[in-house]
Design a protein around this nucleic acid. Structure first.
Length: 410
DNA sequence: CTTAGGG
DNA sequence: CCCTAAG
């Protein structure tokens, strides 16, 4: 039985199984949602002490079938492998680790608000893939990792990709998302089962207590950082299930669901709007880029698959058929990514062999396989962009229409 | 509304 | 990632 009283999927860590299970909807449904919502209200209230919290949690989680699974909970989402979020928060070094856990916990609880979103995070791969190649972890951190958690980001991740699976393997009309990516669940599970640690067994009250403090902090941030979200964006976006680590100061990490919960009068309860020392930052300039999520290798692969399916330019189709699970990634984004990939593939070809490391900063270690594929597709489908010198196998003709003429060519 | 192009 | 112009 998993943490939520549901069956545990055989190959997967219990903690994940609980969340990925599609039956969340049916088994727990409203009660879960309500409880979580209530709990959040409760936790937001600074007046309660830790004891109260404990008892509350005891009740709430019992009803949810979560009894005393909190420990497992935190273990499952042990975030010692996460990079620092940077900015925003300043905690003592010992608090950092715990703090990160809270972040994850936040993500989970908030995510529960939207069952569909949990649904969206269905596949384990979907979650696991959120970390890997783009997750910038220093090598020494990797080796120093006490739990061996990092393993799955360096080795276990996407078997075959790094080992050059051969394009045919995945590019061939593959399943749009996941399923092909049953990322060595063995290893992952193993890591998670063995990550027992002494200081992880802090009293729950301590844990939650600190969490509440953070909640209050977050509340401040809501007024500023989240202001953008509430404009034209769809409220119930899938933002919530996005546990991915971010490098910069968190932003979208303040989930929209929270905003929903406390939007009205609640938001004014504590010290919300007095002097927000959080640097007003009236999103005038630099945050253009802040909202972007890095593309996983997975997504890139889907993109390439999608293009080989529908061809270049059918961004909407590609979005619907290969990225329907991703709330973000609008057709335009996909196109942009393709644009970048072309650039990358071009660069890759240009300085073949040399400056391999320099490119790493530009093109995030995109496997040659993929770049190769990209180049193929690029030559297949004429895309106005790309100054790619076109591979032209034979073709003494049609060079005039080829894409190395760039856009205007005038 | 979907794409292309540019910031 | 965002915005705008054009079909």
């Amino acid at each position: 039985m998993g943490p939520f009283g549901m069956e545990t999927t055989p190959g997967f860590p219990d903690t994940f199984a609980g969340f990925k299970s599609a039956s969340v909807d049916e088994n727990l449904g409203h009660s879960m949602e309500d409880k979580m919502s209530d709990m959040k209200h409760f936790l937001m209230d600074p007046h309660h002490d830790n004891t109260a919290v404990d008892s509350f949690l005891g009740l709430g989680m019992e009803n949810m079938g979560l009894t005393s699974k909190m420990e497992e909970f935190s273990h499952g989402f042990d975030v010692s492998f996460l990079p620092d979020y940077g900015g925003v928060n300043t905690y003592s070094t010992q608090d950092v680790e715990a703090g990160l856990k809270f972040e994850i916990l936040d993500g989970i609880l908030d995510g529960v608000d939207e069952v569909e979103d949990i649904y969206a995070s269905h596949e384990l791969s979907s979650i696991v893939n959120h970390f890997p190649p783009e997750t910038e972890v220093k090598k020494n951190e990797l080796e120093g990792d006490p739990y061996g958690l990092m393993n799955f980001s360096s080795e276990s991740y996407s078997p075959g990709i790094s080992g050059s699976i051969g394009l045919a393997e995945w590019s061939k009309e593959t399943v749009p998302y996941a399923e092909s990516q049953i990322v060595s669940s063995e290893k992952v599970k193993d890591s998670w089962d063995t990550n027992e640690s002494e200081d992880d067994k802090k009293p729950l009250s301590t844990f939650i207590g600190s969490w509440i403090k953070r909640k209050n902090r977050k509340q401040k941030l809501l007024n500023t950082a989240c202001s953008r979200l509430d404009s034209s964006r769809e409220r119930k976006s899938c933002e919530s299930y996005d546990f991915r680590p971010r490098k910069g100061p968190m932003k979208k990490y303040i989930h929209t669901s929270m905003e929903k919960t406390f939007s009205d009068d609640q938001l004014t309860l504590s010290e919300s709007e007095d002097d927000i020392s959080v640097t007003k930052t009236s999103r005038t300039k630099s945050d253009r880029r802040k909202n972007q999520r890095i593309w996983t290798l997975d997504e890139v692969m889907n993109l390439v698959d999608g293009i080989s399916h529908f061809g270049v330019g059918k961004w909407t189709d590609i979005k619907n058929h290969f990225f329907h699970y991703a709330a973000h990634r609008k057709p335009v984004d996909i196109r942009d990514k393709w644009r970048n990939l072309l650039k990358a593939s071009y660069n890759e070809k240009h300085n073949d062999g040399q400056a391999e490391e320099k490119r790493k900063s530009v093109a995030r270690s995109i496997p040659k396989d993929i770049l190769h594929r990209v180049r193929e597709l690029a030559s297949l489908h004429p895309y106005p962009f790309s100054k790619s010198p076109c591979i032209v196998h034979d073709s003494s003709r049609s060079r005039s229409t080829s894409k190395n003429k760039k856009k205007k060519s005038g």
